[in-house]
Write a protein that binds this DNA or RNA. Structure first.
Lengths: 213, 213, 213, 213
DNA sequence: ACGTAAACGAGACGGTACGTCCTGTCTTAGT
DNA sequence: ACTAAGACAGGACGTACCGTCTCGTTTACGT
């Protein structure tokens, strides 16, 4: 297979030939492994993502990977955990503006960084691996809570009545975002010509939430 | 091979020893393969779904599978195509009733038949295989069209104003359903105790759609 | 694989479950593979000799075999190399006695050990694989040199004139032995009844060699 | 594999689209098969010689081949039987001349026609297939008888005493020829520079035979 | 004259083996 | 104790052939 030699070549940083630093974990190895994993994921997708390929590209031994991550899924989750630290804080003054901005920036984040490919892979992985599914669920709860806060802020601002069906609103927002990601439908809006559908989705959701009070 | 009889055994119908029926496709082999694939998928999930395993269980030769399906994804799509013929026709008299019924039955279909596991696998597969993604998109478009009809019927009935934002409504419905499936959250509603969240989601969407007119 | 135990069973020594012994070749695996190869060869001949069968019987992974032997022919050569260490040293006092004894013992070796089947296989393999042919040629040169020494000793003893056509003699001896092997004509002489043809062949060759001086 | 399309292309005679000629063997098919077999054998050797390849090249169905030849070996023997009709008749006036001429022409025949590759393949095949071995033995007996006649003629001419050990002589001649074939050592003699070893071999054998009287 | 029988090409069938890739475990040798 | 390295058993990949089977067609022969 052609990609084997290719995996090694683009390394770039000249393989600094790490070694043990004594009886404890070498952070350089850990980050080399995560970086290699991320690079492979964004370049070849989940298909090319194997422990073997990561080890090769990171210049690490396979057992070093298996010592710290029990399996492929765990490594995958760590790769995403490392990326998602980019938190998307928004405050446009209105709830509708906040949600549109949030989703727009989320789609941009998924589109323009390896995070999108990584997250798609995690969702895929979760379909066959229960541990990954659990991790995904807890991650999702975390993110829902954050969006919940954004919405709560909107309620405090009076953009939405206090008794609005917040859980439904939040769940539907995530459903929308995920489906767009999973069907590859997160292209940037073509500013002038095609009216972006995203604001329409948000508007429907907010009016529905307002009406459920 | 005699030593694989253990793999074949759970099949049930005693492996009637198919053979060629001349220079054309043997439908018995095709369906044996699809049935074996479906069974494996629902029993072990995508992880245990290998061409080799399907061949073993179907009592078929690997080349026979490769002759008719270029790869794992194609076989997967065919398995789903075979199942999805179960169309969920609903007519409760109101749009809200129709949508709640539709989603309830869809979740039951996913929960109680191999179709759920299969469809989760297809979505997962689509994350690494472009051809599968394309197939999934076209399937999705098809299903969206059907739900669009249900909604249009509601509009005709006066359950929704004619200018309601139908595309947003439909997309958000699917996003909701998919996310529930992918996060394993399609348990049957516990009739008395836990109030089912599903009708709340539908209500929010319909009120939002009504308000977008 | 459990279901292949039938293949493993006749092995005898219960498959001690080898594993890696670190970043270097495990000699236990190497010899298990060679022994399995030899056993298969002598039991089923070249027809049943497949890498897959050897791996199965040796309890080894196929990649382990391919790691150390590039192809079937190379493994075959190694099997013979392992057997041919049985060197046939003779010294009866006369050249004629030496050659008769040498050939008699060679035929017995071919007849009574797996070496005969192995060597037949190697010659067969060399007819389609150039690398095997080269290996065979070099092996043959080696063996010719040894017989050349036996003859030279005979010349030193005066059993043959110094100017005898040694190369012709040696080549004709090997041609005789090979053809007997390849046509399956190396049965043990039936001591009393059938006069053994072997001494007659040797006598003709030696008289001819003596006359070429 | 590249050679598949190549197998079909060089056919030359434009594939006259044979078909059945009624309830009996179609000789055109038989010869097309034998010709294809011969061509494959001489081009790719025994390694590329498969029933499938022959059928492809001959434009024949596999069952047509299996109908008339029980297996690969039988087809192989027929290919050689077809070629060996070229009988090498010699008469130089002396026995030594006859034998040198015979062997020289035999080597040329093996070298310059597909017969050499075919015969090597047959000998190889006989090492794993008992039926082929039997056929080879009977063919060899036939050829030995012919050479026996040549030698008998020499005896009649007085080139060898009547009591010479004819069986030894004949067997040694064939052993010599076969080993040369099997080790690929049948190059044409380099007329001027390298003294050809062949006459020396014949001379030794004839002097030895003369001395065994 | 026509139906039957056999041969034909084609190619699908259940299989075996190929040689390659990856998995997760293990051991070594070196910090 | 931890590292890079890499061998190990195992198993799936996708391909080539095996030898068998059935098809639909094409003759020739015996009614």
């Amino acid at each position: 297979m052609g990609e084997h030699s290719a995996d090694v070549a683009p390394k770039g940083k000249a393989a600094p030939r790490r070694t043990s630093i004594g009886g404890r974990r070498n952070p350089a190895s850990a980050s080399a492994i995560l970086e290699a994993a991320e690079a492979i994921l964004s370049e070849t997708g989940l298909a090319g993502f194997s422990i073997e390929a990561v080890a090769r590209r990171a210049g690490a031994g396979k057992p070093t990977i298996y010592r710290w991550w029990p399996n492929r899924s765990a490594l995958l989750m760590d790769v995403y955990a490392r990326q998602k630290e980019t938190v998307l804080r928004v405050d446009t003054g209105t709830l509708e503006g906040d949600l549109v901005e949030l989703l727009t920036r989320l789609f941009a984040f998924w589109r323009d960084t390896p995070a999108g490919a990584t997250f798609r892979s995690i969702i895929a992985e979760a379909q066959s691996d229960p541990a990954s599914l659990a991790a995904l669920q807890s991650f999702l709860a975390d993110r829902r809570a954050y969006v919940g806060e954004v919405v709560a802020r909107g309620i405090a601002r009076g953009d939405l009545p206090p008794k609005a069906d917040l859980p439904s609103l939040v769940e539907l927002i995530f459903g929308f975002a995920w489906m767009r990601l999973l069907t590859g439908d997160i292209a940037a809006p073509d500013a002038d010509h095609v009216p972006d559908a995203l604001p329409a989705r948000v508007r429907l959701l907010l009016r529905g939430a307002a009406a459920t009070a």
